[in-house]
């Protein structure tokens, strides 16, 4: 008798292999950093290999005389098997094609970054070491401000930060915001932090979402009716998007 291809096994194999490959592809292409905190990359990579392994194991049963049909019995199906398989397959194919992109200025504005009240939602439960002003990253500055919010305390301190550009619509044309998203676990909990920059010229020179590195000194200005810490730049450079767009 001619052996028939056991289609359910074929679909299982494909779904497992493609899911595994989807995870591994983000790792190979360096896009994992857009989705996850670097501490947890190994988990996703490990899961990718396990899924590929399971896919291969499932694939091998295709070439056996009778496909394995062991059923431990205690399982109650919730979704029809074909539905689940199709959902998994569709997402794996999509994930293999789509290139995830880091959040941009529009997302930051939608989350109310221009509002000085919501500086950060993190509740620090450890003492951060004191970093010299010139070495502080954006999130270091915001955390420092959270502890002691009076802007005058930082006047003339040197600043050197890198981030993407936001043009808050309610600000004058010579102000922009240099911002970054902060991650604790994965992109799902990313929240934006940023500092205003007082340019000497017009902000159109630095379009939204372009990456800049700003060196200068801190000063206090009244922006949108609020006294705020603002960077008075000596130099603003356009830089390429870093490999890891988030801060932690």
């Amino acid at each position: 008798m001619k052996r028939m291809l056991h289609w359910p096994t074929v679909w299982d194999t494909l779904a497992l292999l493609l899911w595994g490959l989807m995870l591994l592809r983000y790792w190979w292409s360096g896009r994992l950093a857009v989705l996850l905190h670097p501490d947890y990359h190994w988990l996703a990579i490990g899961a990718g290999w396990v899924l590929v392994g399971m896919g291969l194991w499932r694939g091998v049963t295709l070439f056996r005389p009778s496909p394995a049909s062991a059923n431990p019995g205690a399982h109650i199906a919730l979704l029809p098997r074909q539905w689940s398989l199709m959902v998994l397959l569709a997402i794996a194919v999509f994930g293999l094609i789509y290139v995830p992109r880091p959040f941009a200025s529009e997302a930051a504005l939608a989350r109310g970054i221009a509002d000085p009240v919501a500086l950060t939602r993190s509740q620090p439960q450890q003492f951060a070491r004191q970093t010299p002003p010139a070495e502080r990253s954006l999130i270091d500055w915001i955390r420092t401000l959270n502890v002691y919010p009076e802007p005058d305390a930082y006047t003339d301190q040197p600043v050197n930060v890198t981030g993407f550009v936001i043009h808050p619509p309610q600000w004058d044309d010579n102000y922009l915001m240099v911002a970054r998203f902060v991650l604790t676990c994965c992109a799902a909990d990313a929240y934006p932090v940023g500092l205003p920059v007082a340019l000497t010229g017009d902000r159109t020179e630095f379009p939204p979402d372009s990456w800049i590195s700003v060196q200068g000194a801190m000063q206090t200005e009244t922006l949108d009716g609020q006294r705020r810490l603002v960077i008075a730049p000596q130099e603003v450079l356009t830089v390429p998007e870093p490999q890891n767009p988030y801060e932690f």
Partner: peptide, 24 residues
Amino acid sequence: MSQLNQGLTLFLSLLVEATPFLLL
């Protein structure tokens, strides 16, 4: 378009972070 990208990145990041724990 930016919103769609944002949603998809969010969706994929949840999947990628959760899959290892689901497997475990």
